[in-house]
Amino acid sequence: MDKEVAQFSLEDGTKFLVEVEEPEAVAVERVAINTGQMVLQARQTFEEAIDAVKPVASVLVTRLRRGMTTPADEVEVKFGLKLTAEAGAIFTSISGDVNFEITLKWKEEKSS
């Protein structure tokens, strides 16, 4: 797929550009930025796009921390995000087919 440039906005009005894959359908608006270049206008603010991801990350961490017989001392969850002009933020693979990389750590208890 070809790459396009999409403009995302922050809730405070700040705008920034992101390279995205060209949408298959013309479901987004093309706008001119201050340089005159035409870019895709994202449908959501950046914060709205990230808000859609937060509940999934929260459930993962909560379930991994509390749902184990011996809870881990540390829980690390890595996941890839892809910004699209149409859908905002979506989960994407980190490497190969892996969508989530989870690391659980237990500290060794020292006996007195």
Rank of each mutant, 00 (worst) to 15 (best):
K110V: 12
K105N: 09
G13P: 10
M1S: 12
S9F: 12
D51I: 00
V28L: 08
V56S: 01
T62M: 03
Q7H: 01
E48Q: 15
R65Y: 04
F16I: 11
L104R: 13
E11T: 13
P23Q: 03
V5K: 15
Q7D: 00
E29H: 05
T69L: 10
E19C: 04
K78N: 14
N34M: 04
D51M: 02
E74V: 14
W106V: 08
E22G: 00
T92L: 00
S58Q: 12
E74L: 12
A27V: 12
T45A: 04
G80C: 08
L81M: 13
A32C: 02
A52F: 00
N99Q: 10
E22S: 13
F79I: 09
A6L: 11
V59Q: 06
L17F: 09
A89R: 08
A72E: 03
A57K: 07
S93T: 15
V31T: 11
A52E: 09
E19G: 06
E22I: 03
K110M: 07
A6V: 11
V26D: 13
K3N: 10
R66A: 08
T92V: 01
A72H: 07
T84Q: 08
S112N: 12
S112K: 12
L60N: 02
A27L: 14
V53G: 00
V28E: 12
A25C: 02
S111E: 11
A52L: 09
A87Y: 05
D97V: 05
F100E: 08
P23G: 02
E108R: 13
E101C: 03
A85S: 15
K3V: 13
A42P: 05
A32W: 00
E11R: 15
A57Q: 05
L40R: 07
M38G: 01
G88Q: 10
V39Y: 03
S58P: 00
K82H: 04
A27T: 13
S93P: 01
D73G: 12
G67D: 01
R43C: 02
I33R: 08
V75A: 04
A85L: 08
V59I: 11
A49C: 02
K54M: 04
A32R: 14
G13S: 06
T103M: 07
D2W: 02
R63G: 02
F16G: 08
K3S: 13
Q37F: 05
G88W: 09
E86A: 11
T92F: 00
L81S: 05
K3M: 12
I94G: 03
F91N: 02
E108P: 00
V20R: 07
F91C: 03
E47T: 06
P55F: 01
E11I: 10
V59T: 09
T35K: 02
W106C: 07
V28D: 08
V61G: 00
L17M: 13
R63N: 05
P71E: 04
L10P: 02
T92R: 01
E109G: 03
T103A: 10
I33S: 02
F16A: 09
I33D: 14
K107E: 13
S111H: 07
L64M: 10
A27W: 03
I33N: 15
L40F: 14
F100G: 01
E24Y: 02
S58Y: 06
T14Y: 12
V59E: 05
V56P: 00
G36F: 06
V39I: 10
Q37G: 01
S9L: 14
N99C: 05
L83Y: 11
M38E: 15
